[in-house]
């Protein structure tokens, strides 16, 4: 039970930790206070609590596909906020601008809400079993610890760079995370039967299995699928292209941005 909790919590934490550490690094590079990000983390946990609490009702919406549609909305929301973030900073609108803060906070709240809801539901399942609860809680704490450490590692990796390079690196990672969000949203729409399911285009599970550690890390970073469908690939590439287009056009309209 201990190891299982470590893996489950780590998987959930990694994805949210990516978004948080990216924005933490951006705030540090911009020499601004990180207080608003802590507020967003707290609000994300509160939202996650609500999501977990109302999940039985939410699941029943839309004839039983409420959960898929809510998850699609969350992922789409993160994508739009990340795209907004790219537009703003490429237009040379930087911190402490309130709109920049708002899109950063929104993305963190959404990212944390879904991942934390799953962890809360998982742990709450053991509330009547005190014996198992102990190992589940220790496992979850270890998983949380490893996930947060990965985030801190990424954070230090980014702030070790020069501000201009760090901002570019953050933008690249934001684009990758944004693409991953849209790929997951597509997956949920297929699961809900709102998008037609098709045969997988390829099967790379013999090279990198989704069960393996590299597979899991790649999943957290860029929603790696060993057996993706056409719709996922098309949506993934289109969203990457869209975000790059947003960066280029914002720069074009604004002239060359100054990073420092």
């Amino acid at each position: 039970m201990l190891l299982n909790s470590v893996i489950l919590v780590l998987r959930e934490v990694l994805e949210a930790a990516m978004v948080v550490s990216l924005f933490m690094a951006f705030t540090t590079v911009s020499q601004q206070s990180r207080y608003f990000l802590l507020k967003a983390i707290f609000l994300g946990l509160v939202a996650g609590g609500f999501y977990a609490y109302f999940l039985p009702e939410i699941s029943n919406w839309l004839e039983g596909i409420g959960q898929e549609i809510t998850n699609t909305m969350i992922h789409l929301g993160i994508f739009l906020l990340l795209t907004g973030f790219l537009w703003l900073i490429s237009s040379n609108i930087v911190l402490p601008n309130r709109l920049v803060k708002a899109v950063m906070m929104g993305a963190i709240i959404l990212a944390i809400s879904r991942e934390s809801a799953e962890i809360m539901l998982y742990i709450s399942g053991f509330r009547s079993d005190h014996f198992l609860m102990q190992s589940v809680l220790s496992g979850s704490l270890i998983g949380l610890g490893i996930g947060v450490s990965c985030g801190i590692f990424l954070y230090h990796l980014m702030i070790a760079l020069k501000p201009a390079a760090a901002t570019k690196f953050i933008c690249v990672l934001v684009v990758i995370v944004g693409g991953s969000m849209m790929s997951q949203a597509t997956q949920f729409l297929i699961q809900a039967d709102w998008l037609t399911s098709t045969e997988p285009v390829w099967d790379s599970s013999h090279i990198i299995s989704e069960h393996s550690l590299p597979g899991q890390l790649l999943y957290a970073l860029m929603a790696y699928e060993a057996t993706p469908t056409w719709s996922q690939i098309v949506v993934y590439l289109t969203s990457l292209a869209l975000m790059i287009l947003v960066i280029i056009s914002a720069r074009f309209l604004q002239g060359q941005p100054k990073y420092d």
Binding site: E68, E118, S205, E210, H211, T229
Partner: peptide, 8 residues
């Protein structure tokens, strides 16, 4: 993973 499905 093989079916690409996850649902709580």
């Amino acid at each position: 993973y093989e079916l690409n499905r996850e649902k709580v």
